[in-house]
Computed example of a mutant assay.
Amino acid sequence: MDYKSAGVDIDAGHEVVNRIRGLAQGTFTPGVLSDIGSFGGLFHMQAAGASDPVLVASADGVGTKLKVAFMLNRHTTIGEDLVNHCVNDILVQGARPLFFLDYLATGRLSPDIAVDIVDGLARACKANGCALLGGETAEMPGFYANREYDLAGFIVGVVERPLVLTGDRIRVGDALIGLPSTGLHTNGYSLARRIAFDTLMLGIHDHIPELGVGIGEALLRPHRSYLNPVLPLVRDGLINGMAHITGGGLTDNVPRVLPEGTSARIDRSSWEVPALFTWLVRRGDVPDADAWRTFNMGIGMVLAVPAQQVNHVLERLSEAGESEGAVIGEIVSGDRSVQYVGH
């Protein structure tokens, strides 16, 4: 017996590395000192141009959104989901990304699928000014089903120490500005899939009139990045705190940045919840509190801004192409919770 007969194709792994090398090299920034295929990725911090740098690191995955990609047999946007999620996670602390690494584990390695995934990673890294520094591809037969995989990402960014955002600057009276999501992003898919495919017994290509597209298309919309419109506001000291709305929705994520003695009052009537969420809640008979703690409900990022700077910040966001940002609430006295008002 040999390794290939046991389910691991080393030659396929080499093919993947050769095919993705160019994709990764296209993301390299001046700080990158190593090439794809090295045992470790090298990055020269002086190239980051920070005088008092603080490194910010995060790791995440895509969750069961992968199941939708498997069902559609479409793998070109999963990498975007992962990079943008990680970029947003460090952005809330004021950081810009420096480099990214990925971990791809699969049962039987398909070079075509792997290249599609890395193409998405590279595309998003380039859009965010982030180097795809390296990664790992693991072929694990018997552990993952054929043509299925798991994907995780690791990001490192930098922020000048005086600009680090921890939420401690948030004050009663600050306005909360919500920036729109593009869909479920990367959270709530276990519930969404159960509603669509187990309860309603829909096929992945079934058209949903309320959504104007097939259910698979609606669920696979990429997780967006907020870096380009928001980072300049951080650098200019216009933001007191931020929350990336991921698992737990507004209910659980906004309190993560609130200082003691404050709460967030959010007016649910201040934006129109997108049709995908209202459809899922109605067809799944999802309790109201569960819906707002599972889905982002159309808001992907929340900015806490001094009240006197609100109009200026909204103008800056609009100039940066973020014209749908809107005031959705305010900071009030409280116990680090979210208080919902409106319908």
Rank of each mutant, 00 (worst) to 15 (best):
A50Q: 14
A50H: 15
S51R: 11
D52F: 11
V54A: 11
V54L: 15
S58R: 05
D60E: 12
G61M: 08
G63S: 05
T64N: 08
K65D: 04
K65P: 00
V68T: 12
V68N: 02
L72I: 01
H75F: 12
H75M: 07
T76Q: 12
T76K: 13
T77Y: 05
T77V: 08
E80F: 03
D81I: 08
D81K: 01
D81L: 10
L82D: 04
V83F: 01
V83A: 04
C86E: 14
V87I: 13
N88E: 04
I90D: 01
I90K: 00
V92L: 02
V92T: 09
V92C: 01
A95H: 06
A95M: 09
L98Q: 15
L101K: 05
L101Y: 00
D102A: 13
D102V: 12
Y103Q: 08
Y103F: 10
A105N: 10
T106G: 01
G107M: 04
G107V: 06
R108G: 05
R108F: 15
S110K: 01
D112S: 11
D112K: 09
D112P: 01
A114C: 12
D116V: 02
D116N: 12
D119H: 06
G120I: 04
G120R: 01
L121Y: 14
L121H: 15
A122W: 04
A122P: 01
A122T: 07
A122D: 05
A124L: 08
A124H: 01
A124Q: 05
C125A: 05
K126T: 12
K126P: 01
A127P: 00
A127C: 02
N128H: 10
N128G: 07
N128T: 05
N128V: 08
G129D: 14
A131H: 06
L132A: 07
G135I: 06
G135K: 04
E136G: 04
T137W: 14
E139M: 06
E139K: 08
P141Q: 13
P141D: 14
G142H: 11
G142Y: 07
Y144K: 08
A145C: 09
A145L: 14
A145N: 08
N146D: 14
